[in-house]
């Protein structure tokens, strides 16, 4: 599965004049590739790998689902893990209403793609799907989700160097004040800023429409220092 992911990430890493162009591959070849990647990804997208996970199809989804799956991957998962979808049992009209709300609330999906997504969701998480069985997570694991971690080798970053990096690489989407814009999410007061290892992995690996950025430990430390300096 790794080669597909790397290809996907490379696809995503296309910069246009210092700005990041969202990776919305639309050529037939790219769609086939995405379908393959999504097929691999889907079963592991649940938060905890275990036999108890819901109802998600184990076999590869039909190729027709590829564009919808790609939108879910690139536009939805920044704010929602897929478990939130798995538990819904809604009609297409209800899905369309939910998506309209998310669109108004800043989801970057193009308006003309919403219908496609509503149809996909109604077919995947409609009224006739069986009951949802949530994953169980130990209380210790839950507490860990909310716990800050020591910075380790990413400690002691420089705010000014971080500012320069941020302005060049991040502000086109996350905006000068860090509170996000049409393409980037809010970064102010985010817990990941106090989980330095996760932060560095996120910056390097990308997420959703964000491409991965080659970032040294020193640069990640500087970015962290700057991002933590934003006022609430």
């Amino acid at each position: 599965m790794e080669p597909e992911r790397l290809l996907l990430e490379r696809l995503a890493r296309r910069h246009v004049g210092g700005r990041v162009r969202p990776a919305r591959a639309r050529s037939v070849a790219a769609l086939a590739l995405l379908a393959a990647a999504c097929a691999v990804e889907r079963p592991v997208s649940a938060p905890v790998p275990s036999a108890a996970v819901v109802v998600a199809p184990v076999s590869a989804p039909p190729a027709a689902d590829a564009p919808a799956l790609e939108i879910l991957r690139s536009d939805c998962r920044g704010c929602h893990t897929e478990d939130l979808l798995h538990q819904q049992r809604l009609t297409e009209a209800q899905w369309a209403k939910v998506l309209d709300k998310m669109h108004r609330w800043g989801a970057p999906t193009e308006a003309e793609d919403l219908q496609l997504l509503a149809s996909h969701l109604a077919a995947s998480y409609g009224l006739d799907l069986g009951s949802f069985v949530p994953e169980r997570l130990s209380a210790d694991a839950v507490a860990d989700l909310f716990t800050s971690r020591p910075d380790g080798k990413l400690a002691g970053g420089d705010v000014e160097r971080g500012r320069a990096l941020y302005d060049e690489r991040c502000s086109p989407c996350h905006v000068e004040d860090g509170r996000g814009g049409p393409l980037g999410l809010n970064l102010v007061g985010r817990r990941v800023l106090y989980r330095a290892d996760e932060f560095a992995a996120l910056v390097r690996g990308g997420a959703g429409r964000m491409p991965g950025f080659e970032t040294t430990d020193a640069e990640a430390a500087d970015l962290l220092a700057y991002l933590r300096s934003f006022p609430d």
Binding site: R77, C79, T81, D83, L145
Partner: peptide, 10 residues
């Protein structure tokens, strides 16, 4: 069991 049921992680 000291567990919680995950409706969504994020």
């Amino acid at each position: 069991s000291r567990e919680l049921l995950v409706h969504s992680l994020r």
